[in-house]
Write a protein that binds this DNA or RNA. Sequence first.
RNA 1: GGUCCUGUGGUGCAGUUUGGAGUGCACGCCGCCCUGUCAAGGCGGAGGCCGCGGGUUCAAAUCCCGUCAGGACCGCCA
Length: 583
Amino acid sequence: MMRTHRGGELKTSDVGTTVVMCGWVGNRRDHGGVIFVDLRDSSGIIQVVIDPSDEGLDVGRRLRNEWVLRVTGSVRERPAGTTNDDMATGQIEVGAVAVEVLSESEPIPFPLDDRVEVDENLRLRHRYLDLRRDAMQSNLRLRARVNSAVRLAMEAQGFCEIETPMLIASTPEGARDFVVPSRLKPGNFYALPQSPQLFKQLLMVGGFDRYFQIARCLRDEDLRADRQFEFMQLDLEMSFADQQDVIEATSKAVVAAAKAARPDAAVGEVGRITWHEAMDRFGSDKPDIRFGMELTELTAIFSATEFRAFADVEAVKGICVPGEADATRSKVDALVDRAKQLGAAGLVWMRVRDTENGVDLESPVAKFLTETERKAVVVALGAVPGDLVLIASGERHKTCQILGQIRLDLGRPPVTEGLAFVWVVDFPLFEGLTDDGKPIPAHHPFTMPHAEDIDRLESDPLSVRSQAYDLVLNGWELGSGSVRIYRPDIQQRIFSMLGIEAEEAHSKFGFLLDAFAYGAPPHAGFAFGLDRLVAILAGEENIREVIAFPKTQSGTDPLTNAPTAVDDKQLGELGLRLLPKKA
RNA sequence: GGUCCUGUGGUGCAGUUUGGAGUGCACGCCGCCCUGUCAAGGCGGAGGCCGCGGGUUCAAAUCCCGUCAGGACCGCCA
C-alpha cells in the first residue's frame, strides 16, 4: 500500500494516528533545525514537519519544490500560537518519521500559485504542471461534477445514452468539416461530426424515444474565447414530444448542473422570452438579463420630428445609462465611434440635467429637438438627472443590435455574478433573403415552422416563426434546438423554397429522408455546449480554462505541437500528395 | 482574409512616448546561516540574442519596415 491517507483530508480527530501520505512538495521552509514542507495531493495541503537531525531525515535538506514524496508520520496538533486559520488543515500537522523521495523535479518553468498570471502559451506548453494549480484542479473537478449531474438528470428522466460515430459522411451545410482521408477507399473522406444531428433523428425513427449523449463535436472554424475546434455538447432528442417537453427536460439538466457546480447559488425557474421581445428589449437573441438598461422604444415620440436623423426611420431606440451624465467628452465620443464601428450611422448622446425648466436634456443636438420631444424621451426612459441617454435610429433590427451591444459594453456584470438562464423561443424560420431571393434558414432545414404561420410559408416567408429555441446563460448562447419536420410534404416545401432540388436533397440527406418514409415519429431535440456552461459556472471568461488540453487561437497545441506534418509513406497509403506551398 | 493589443534573465513587471553603456523592482534558482514557519527570515551569488530579420542613425530594447508567436475581436461558427 502506497498510502493510508490523503493529507488534505486529515482532521483534528486524526491526532495521534500514524499516517502514510504521498504528494508533491508545494513549498518548503527550511529553518535549519526544523523544516516545514507543505505536502500537496489531490485533496489539499498538509504541513509536514521534519527534524533533519533525526535519523534518516537529513534528506529534508535536499527537498525542492515539486519533488514527489512518500511521508510517514504522526498527526498532531500544532503548538499553541502556530496554527494557520487560512488553511483547511491549519490546526494540525504531521511529524515526519520517514521521508522517501519518489521522484525529483527540475525547477519548474513558472510558479504554480495564483499570485501571478502566467503567459498562457507557457502554461499550455507545460499543461501537466499548470493542471496542478488550484484553479485548474477545481475547474476540471467542477466540470466532472457537471457531467455527472447532467447524466444523472437525463437518466432520471428516462433518456437512454447512445454513442454515435465519429467518422461520418461530410455534408456541405453548416460549419466547415474536419475531414479524414480513407485508406481503404483512396480519394474518399470521412468527416468528423459537427454534431450528432442526423444520427439522433435516425435513433428516433429507430424507436429510442428519449436519447441523449455527452457528445464530442468538431467544427473547423476560427477559434475564440468561447469556441474550440472540438467541444462537448449535451445532445438530446425526444419522440412524441413538443417544444415544451424538450424545454422542460433540458431545463432539469442545466439546473441540476448549476446546483452541482454552485450548491450555494440561487438557480430559479428558467425564464422564457420570445426572440422578438429579446431583440426589442435587449437588442440581442442571447440577452443578458442579469441587468437592466433595457432598450426603450422612442419611435412614436419622433413620428413628426424635424430632426433629420430621427425622421422617416424604421425605429428610434434609446437606453439610459445611470449616473453617467458627467462622462467625459472623450468617453462619449468613444461610444459614438463604437456605434459606428458596429454599423450605426451615428449615436445621439444627451446628458440628463435638472434645469430651471425641470428635468431636461443637454447635448449638441438638443436644440434640434422640441421641448415636448425631449421631455417625452426623459419620461419614456425613466431618466433622472445625472443619467446619460443614448439614442440610435435606423433600420429596426440593426438599431436594436447596435444599442444592445453598447448596453453590454456599458453595463455587463462580471461573469462570476449571478446565473440567469433564459429560453429564447419563436425564432424566425428565415433570417433573410439571398441575392436571388431565396430565404436563408436561421437554423437547419429540418426545423418545423410554427403551426400558426405555416400557411404563410410561401407568401410571406420572413414572417414565419419556427419551432426553434435557444438556451442562454448570462448572455452566452449555450445551445439551440428545434421541433423537427417529420412529414415529407412539409420538408419538400422547405427544400423547394431553399432551392434544393429533389436530387440534391437526396444526395445530401437521402438516408434521413428514406428513414422518414418508414413511419417517422414526431420528434424534437436540443443540444447545449458543456464547455460554455462549465466556464460560466466556474466563473471563467474563457473555455480554455475548463478544458484540460485546449488549442490556441491558431488551432495548435503547444504541448504536442499538433498539427504536424506526416511523411510521404503515410500520405501514399491514403492516396494523397501535397500541393507545393504557395510562394 | 481583416483590425487591435502583447513579446525585456526561469516567472511577473517597469524602462519604449522624448534613441545615449542591459539599467531597475518583485518572485524563483544556487550557496551559507538559522528550531515554529506557512508568500518564513538574514547574508552572498549566478542568470539577458530586450521574439526574429532588415533599415534609419555616430548610436536602437526604444524610431521605421517585414516576419514569427500568443491574446481580444470582425468575417466565419446551418
